[in-house]
Nucleic acid binder design. Sequence first.
DNA 1: ACGATTATATCGTAATACGATATATATCAA
DNA 2: TTGATATATATCGTATTACGATATAATCGT
Lengths: 139, 139
Amino acid sequence: MQNDDLTDADYEALSNLRYTLRRFMDFSASAAQLEGLPAQQHQALLAIRGHRGAEAMTIGALAERLLIAPHSATELVSRLVAAGYVSRNADPADKRKQTLALTGKAEGVLKRLTAAHLTEIKELAPRLIDILRGLHPDL
Amino acid sequence: MQNDDLTDADYEALSNLRYTLRRFMDFSASAAQLEGLPAQQHQALLAIRGHRGAEAMTIGALAERLLIAPHSATELVSRLVAAGYVSRNADPADKRKQTLALTGKAEGVLKRLTAAHLTEIKELAPRLIDILRGLHPDL
DNA sequence: ACGATTATATCGTAATACGATATATATCAA
DNA sequence: TTGATATATATCGTATTACGATATAATCGT
């Protein structure tokens, strides 16, 4: 790891990358908040909805996807169930597991949020790609 | 905003994007933690170091860059000063302002972290660009 | 069947950003 | 110049949320 070839431009570019990501996260959190959803709850809904594969989403799989501890996912899901966005169902095949499903309410909110995010990403992506290319010209 | 053309693939791609970003943030937070720095303190150091322009970084400018309230930046900087990473200096031109500078300790830590991040981004960037392109084929 | 593992849950704690508010300095209009 | 307003930073109490430690139930391997 040759540290000595770091230039001012490297620090500036990395700072710009983080600033750009932060603005995206901030946009996302604000959009979710307008729908009455804390950011992490929105991420959970997206992870459940965007989950591919035949098997339904579980608490443990959600934890992996969100990079949080399983017991944190438990708490997150509890909040979502309390707010009426998610239903918990015991997995008949493995009674330890709780399979998760979105309610109609969640589907509606998530559809609006996702559409807004795709629009935002359309604006964001070119800038992001430029910054990434600036950091590694060979991309 | 035509919501009705959202496909399963859209949700999945957006979910994948967030997962990828999350892993980058997680890598970053872990790397900072190994250096003894909470993630947000690392971001503050990077923002100060990556700040371009003749004028020195101030609390207010840092707040803008980190997308936090000015009084939250005050608290963040207080933690950094207490930990010996940043020095506060009254701006002679405007005595309301506090200009910020990195200590030698911070320079060393930040150099190592930045090098590690550039390496990580080299791996991350292609996947990220693919996902962004998948969301908007015209990129 | 039983010990080990997996999945989920509970509770107290810690970190950190915010709201409300305060103080000092600067700017601008009359 | 003076007084009102705006700007920059600071303080304190609070709320959110993920975590550590721990617990319980179900499943699996031998």
